[in-house]
């Protein structure tokens, strides 16, 4: 942390829910009295391309962009995307990863190789990495869209806020609009939390 600013980088692929996850974290940071800035992605980049969002919060945030190599936490929805942005994380910073690989056509088509061991590579670079298969958990729970909530569960123990407050922030969205999904999301949140813990 620099000047009391927490820097969180959320990364993944268009359509995975990176933006929603960041929005929920941002709303919690606001509820806790922080100044907040958060970058969005729109247009062309969303079409299956690389998506990332910078979230910065603290007493007073200037640039919306996390200075190079200063992210405290990288929350990554895909392992190669974690590796892509890993140099943005400060030494000793934390990387939380969904290990389910998603191969773009240029990789499955044989034009480029997929990195052999993204998690190992990041660990060797001095980062703390907690990696688990959030996609498998989502499938077990019967809804692929839950990856989002699972990943938020994974980060819950590492924020400067009580775990239950994040959980409440996630679930309140469903209580308001789709109450039936609140219980399922609570299970997903807890599963993500234990997933990250078991990987620690």
């Amino acid at each position: 942390m620099q000047n009391g600013i927490t820097n969180i980088l959320v990364a993944g692929i268009g359509g995975q829910g990176v933006m929603t996850a960041t929005e929920i974290l941002a709303q919690l940071a606001i509820a806790k009295g922080n100044d907040v800035k958060k970058t969005e992605v729109a247009g062309m980049a969303q079409r299956g391309g690389v998506v990332n969002s910078h979230l910065r919060f603290g007493p007073h945030v200037l640039s919306p962009v996390i200075p190079a190599g200063c992210a405290d936490i990288l929350l990554a929805f895909e392992p190669a995307e974690a590796l892509r942005w890993s140099k943005e994380v400060r030494l000793g910073g934390l990387v939380l990863i969904n290990t389910a690989r998603q191969l773009p056509p240029v990789v499955s088509g044989g034009l480029y190789p997929y990195p052999e061991d993204p998690v190992g590579e990041m660990r060797r670079a001095g980062l703390t990495v907690y990696a688990f298969d959030a996609t498998a958990i989502a499938h077990e729970l019967g809804e692929i869209k839950l990856i989002n909530t699972i990943m938020l569960g994974a980060i819950a123990d590492h924020l400067p806020f009580p775990v239950d407050d994040l959980k409440e922030q996630v679930l309140s969205r469903f209580r308001a609009r789709k109450p039936a999904l609140a219980a399922l999301n609570e299970r997903a949140f807890e599963a993500g939390r234990s997933g990250a813990r078991a990987a620690a």
Binding site: G49, Y114, P115, P118
Partner: peptide, 17 residues
């Protein structure tokens, strides 16, 4: 300067849905 190695990762260009 950040002396850590820069990881090499394939490009993930946007594509049709």
């Amino acid at each position: 300067t950040d002396s850590r190695p820069t990881p090499t990762v394939f490009p993930r260009p946007p594509t049709l849905c």
